[in-house]
Design a protein around this nucleic acid. Structure first.
Lengths: 348, 348
DNA sequence: CCGATAGCCGGGAACGTTACCGGAGATTGT
DNA sequence: ACAATCTCCGGTAACGTTCCCGGCTATCGG
């Protein structure tokens, strides 16, 4: 029973007493077939437990019914959420998702793209490692950029979050709480996301009559360890009674919180932290991380939608920026009515 | 340039001046070919930018080079880590991974399995929704169970974590810290994982001369909200000065911590919490969550290894249980030398 | 010098499906 | 009543690859 040969459409046709063309028509509900024979075929298919062979379909029709997703790391909660959204939407569209993690490594990314091409996926959603992504034009597959790397490619559709709006949300909230001179904790200098974030901040500062040059910055990796290290550098450099940090990423913000605690400082008494991403872990920290939530799941869904448009040929090459949302938890002090906090007891 | 037809092996053969059989031999480095012609073919392939069509390969050879992974939720950090391990190992083995989230829903699971069958994946790694998983024998694909659902299927290989060892680790640690009567915060009653956890606890209690019947239990969903609700019930039922909880899952433990704070209790002064899973978010909570770490990434890797064995026919139908590791952070009080803590100031 | 063997290569068939073309009846219009 | 149209169906050719079989050349043993 186990070693039984797989049923093909020919078996179904024979069982139903029709030709395989007719069986195919019934199975792919084409219009030119009588309801009667369709019923017969469908019954036969069910009886035999027939499952259509998508490899053969893809081979003949040129559509494999598979989509590729290449992100930095599926174990990163933000990207996991994106993947979930993409997967859900792909399933609704009747296609499957091949997921790959590039680890910000060019070689891995290249290998994954090759695997995707060889698997003949119908299209790819990618957050490219390099913001150059030079193989783009001879990539030979429909694709959609996701995340923040859309700037240099005006001719390709992309889905990202609205950084400008997000930064406005964050800065205005900081200002309303009395934080006039937050540190900006940025990602690596070579990432275009860094530049975009910084530019959004500058633009908004100008709008609010703040001199952007007065805002101190510190770089670090987009990880907990990166934020941890950067925060130690910040605290070593800034001996103010209250240090405020606007992190470009929640993981960094969380790392910053840990670093602050290690120096005996508590949040939000001595330190205020604003995150960016909205990963669930921020809710469990104590105090809860106030952050700007990117619509990760929706991002994944929209990327798939753009991609199927792209595949279908109706490519409007649009750039889509989804709005973000401020989540207030407890990591931001209200300095407008607070007395000056005292210097932490044990500093390093 | 964009609309250029895809290069096939026939184009390569023509370019190299050989037959397609020879080209195929060169490309799949078969032995019966001279080094000279192989070089010619390979050069021609590179020149034309040839990419082998895996759909056609799968069609002819019966191997699609794709593996399926069906887990409850890719956005759950534990499963994301498993997926990452599986994906890495699959890439090393030269195959791609189709990822699906079932959301503990039978219908979704069934649809995903159908998609996987139709895609003609070579095998599937699955954490089944139902611990019955009755379609198993007529599933018709090589597969490996992952997680805690291997009990009822002695004939299938599976990969999971060593719950017995983990529970021993946890209980001994609790006892060493002076916690003699922890609450057990369990998952839903219908999940077999619940029974396994409970049995492991009982067995170990007997070994340590503790009457397992004295351990109070509380059920809940395997989520933050579930742990949150369960903790409120526990605190309502237990008015002791110090309440200790051994949660079956980190998310529940985190939810429990939030609930405790809401009632004005602090951890570890009034409440001790021991988690289970080792998700990264536990490190950011304050205090850090002491927990038993499951080797999630290794789990994913081993599952793929078992699966390729299964596909290759050398199925030893082994059950693999990987050891867990205790991570001490700050959520457990040391009751052996502490004076009796006072009752929390504001109880609900 | 001839047959056997090994090494290398080409030709065809097959995998399961869909696209296309043509044909047999049934139905319609004049 | 006859041509024209429509509805439905069957046969055949692809899609790109691998596998099997047979053939050609060169080498070798006797």
């Amino acid at each position: 029973m186990r070693g039984h040969r797989r049923q093909t459409i020919i078996d179904v046709a024979r069982q139903a007493g029709v030709s395989k063309s007719t069986a195919a028509r019934a199975l792919s509900d084409a219009p030119e077939i009588s309801a009667d024979t369709r019923g017969k075929v469908l019954r036969a298919a069910r009886l035999l437990g027939y499952e259509r062979n998508h490899l053969a379909v893809g081979m003949r029709s040129g559509r494999s019914g598979m989509l590729g997703l290449v992100i930095p790391d599926i174990a990163n909660p933000f990207w996991a959420e994106v993947a979930r959204g993409a997967q859900d939407r792909a399933a609704e569209a009747g296609s499957s998702l091949l997921v790959f993690s590039s680890d910000w490594d060019h070689g891995r990314e290249a290998r994954h793209l090759q695997a995707l091409r060889q698997a003949r996926v119908d299209g790819v959603i990618i957050n490219p490692v390099a913001d150059s992504f030079d193989d783009l034009d001879r990539f030979g597959l429909p694709f959609v950029l996701i995340g923040s790397s859309a700037e240099r490619f005006p001719d390709t559709s992309s889905v990202g979050s609205d950084i400008t709006q997000a930064v406005r949300l964050g800065l205005d909230h900081l200002i309303s709480k009395g934080h006039r001179r937050p540190w900006l904790m940025l990602g690596p200098r070579w990432r275009i996301a860094q530049a975009r974030f910084l530019r959004a901040v500058h633009d908004h500062c100008v709008e609010r009559d703040v001199d952007p040059a007065t805002l101190p910055t510190e770089d670090g990796e987009y990880t907990v360890a990166g934020g941890h290290a950067a925060m130690h550098r910040i605290l070593a450099a800034d001996r103010s009674a209250h240090v405020t940090v606007f992190a470009a990423n929640d993981l960094m913000a969380l790392g910053a919180g840990m670093a602050a605690r290690e120096t005996g400082r508590t949040c939000p008494e001595h330190v205020s932290i604003l995150g960016f991403d909205g990963i669930p872990a921020g809710a469990f920290a104590w105090p809860g991380l106030t952050t700007i939530e990117k619509p990760a799941r929706a991002l994944g869904r929209r990327a798939v939608e753009s991609l199927v448009d792209e595949i279908a040929g109706r490519a409007d090459h649009g750039r889509i920026y989804l709005p973000c949302r401020l989540i207030e938890r407890g990591s931001l002090a209200d300095l407008t009515r607070a007395e000056a906090p005292r210097i932490p007891a044990t500093a390093p």
